[in-house]
Amino acid sequence: MFEARLPQGQILKKLIEAVRELVTDANFECKPSGLSLQAMDSSHVSLVSLLMRADGFDPYQCDRNRTLGINLRTLASVLKCSSNDDIITIRAEDDGDSAILIFESPSSDRLSEFDLKLVDIDNEQLVIPDTQYDAVVRMPSAEFQRIVRDMQILGDSVTIACSKDGVKFSANGEIGSGSVRLKQSSAVDSEDDAVTVDLQQAVSLTFALRYLSLFSKAAPLSPTVTLSFSKDVPLLVEFRIADMGHLRFYLAPKIDE
């Protein structure tokens, strides 16, 4: 049997809200070490990679590896039936064709249970190599969300340039052009408010804003986001999930014809 109880159930709610517009169906890979998911959007330009380690659940039981194919739109609707402070348990019987979701109120006086039919998903998996990135930018996730939204006024692409001075986002379209430049923070009250650039070499890449906008829906998961860049390599956008894992998005850069 597979059973994973998540005391902070709202983490799962935020996760599914963050990916449901990008990915329709996904295979949750359940292993003794934890739960993971890898899925591409329908145009195969971006990829979602989720990891939730077993030790982030209480308790976590997985006797054998299981793949749970789930329609994320359905899962999102079911999760809307839970309260933000509910404890959420995901369960799958060994011979079952469904995943069971249990929502438990903090005082345990309300218990709801939903049985979700599993779906067969044939999804192509990609091997993501370990990469030494040219530049790693860390910033508040709300700032990332705001910049992506602002740049969308101008066009459908954004060029992101990292240098020792900071990071510059620029876009241009029919109505005009604009940019936002963030300097590395010198002194901040909280580390979560800082902008840092860890630079091996200056790099500039162009990306479709539509996908960055979808990635930025994960902002409620974490106060900070890291963006990792290398020349001619997909962008990595990472949100940490408390102390238990991460939600990563990869996006292929646009390249000159």
Partner: peptide
């Protein structure tokens, strides 16, 4: 102009 390659242009299938 610029074109949008798919991810498999960069990452190989497993």
């Amino acid at each position: 102009g610029m074109k949008q390659p798919v991810l498999s242009h960069f990452f190989r299938p497993s």
